[in-house]
């Protein structure tokens, strides 16, 4: 079982030390990613899903810091705790872009405007592989072909502004996979694209994953994307995972009131009556004044006064691999 684990995140805490106070962007998150599988993290903006990804990559903004926890990468030659490595050290740079690669949300701004896409892809290859420039160019052309860019021999000399959004995201993916990473982190890879392009990019990611045998960490706010691509899911709310499990469990047997509310707020095609889309009451609380107890209690329809606002619920396994942190299902061993 544990042979299949690629990345293990244990009790990860990433805080931002700002003038206004400490923001606990990620506050005790644990999950495991299996080799070759897709793990999805879903949640509203500001729930800490991107910061979790940035923590794994060690590319946090200047004021963000991993305070606690482990990020264990399993390799054939042993394990390494990424959280213990200095972000700018050579060791960290050898993992970044090589073993763990990342694609980003905005294909429009993710490529620098003054270099050709070929230049930017070859840079990654030359950085991590011991090849000559001409070979790097060949690899880059191959990669562009792999991600479905037509006429890659020509497009490799294109500047990003000469490409459409979908093409740029494909080029970004080519850049990320050019060193055969064992884990690809996709941070909202389809959010900025139109719907047809979104579907193509998801298809592409799935095909590549199968071909190259890499694991994917899919960060998104879109339940539809999760349903389409993920094997396992974690639902995050305000820096904590509230529910996690296999994708079918989460969709067909959701337990946490937040997950249930999220699923209800997806518009469904072919619904008979025209009715208002359900939404979650209230706003995401300010990160400087997190609610006491369960962080969702201020918006929770099943709120139990005197319990939910007193203590934080711990994770309870309700089914095989399906864990939920909610007092409705126990979880009060913290008392």
């Amino acid at each position: 079982m544990s042979d299949n684990i690629l990345l293990e995140v244990k009790n990860l805490k990433t805080y931002f030390h700002l003038d206004e106070g400490i923001v606990k962007a990620v506050d005790g998150v644990s999950f495991k990613i299996e080799k070759g599988k897709t793990f999805g993290i879903v949640g509203e903006s500001g729930c800490g899903k991107s910061i979790t990804a940035h923590s794994i990559m060690q590319i946090l903004p200047p004021r963000g810091r991993i305070e606690e926890g482990e990020i264990i990468l399993h390799r054939e030659s042993g394990t390494v705790d990424i959280a213990k490595i200095k972000p700018n050290s050579e060791e960290a740079r050898k993992i970044r872009g090589n073993e763990i690669a990342m694609i980003f949300q905005e294909p429009m701004t993710a490529l620098a405007p003054v270099y050709t896409v070929g230049n930017q892809i070859q840079e990654a290859i030359l950085l991590h592989q011991n090849v000559k420039k001409e070979q790097a160019r060949e690899i880059a052309i191959d990669m562009l072909r792999k991600v479905g860019i037509p006429k890659p021999e020509e497009r490799i000399d294109s500047y990003p502004f000469e490409m459409s959004g979908g093409m740029r995201q494909r080029a970004m993916i080519a850049m990320a996979i050019c060193c055969n990473p064992s884990l690809l982190i996709a941070d909202e890879p389809t959010t900025a694209l139109d719907v047809t392009t979104q579907a193509q990019i998801l298809d592409l990611l799935r095909t590549l994953q199968k071909d190259m045998g890499m694991a994917t960490l899919m960060i998104t706010h879109d339940m539809g994307v999760i349903a389409e691509i993920a094997d396992d899911v974690a639902v995050m709310y305000l820096g904590k995972i509230v529910e996690t499990g296999p994708v079918s469990e989460i969709f067909y047997n959701p337990k946490h009131p937040y997950t249930i509310a999220l699923l209800k707020s997806i518009p469904k095609v072919g619904e008979k009556k025209r009715k208002r889309l359900e939404s979650i009451e209230g706003m995401v609380p300010s990160p400087y004044e997190l609610p006491t107890g369960c962080r969702f209690h201020t918006r929770c329809p099943s709120y139990m006064a005197g319990i939910c606002d007193r203590a934080e619920p711990s994770a309870v396994e309700v089914n095989d691999g399906h864990k939920v942190s909610c007092f409705l299902y126990g979880g009060n061993e913290n008392e």
């Binding site: 590319i59 700018n88 970044r96 980003f104 993710a110 490529l111 620098a112 405007p113 850049m175």
Partner: peptide, 29 residues
């Protein structure tokens, strides 16, 4: 603050080389 800087960092580029190749170069234009 632009995304391509984070992208370059995610590639594993050393910080100083990254600064000169990307943001400084573009800020000078």
């Amino acid at each position: 603050g632009k995304q391509y800087v984070t992208v370059a960092r995610a590639k594993g580029l050393p910080e100083r080389r990254l600064l000169f190749k990307y943001p400084i170069r573009i800020a000078a234009n």
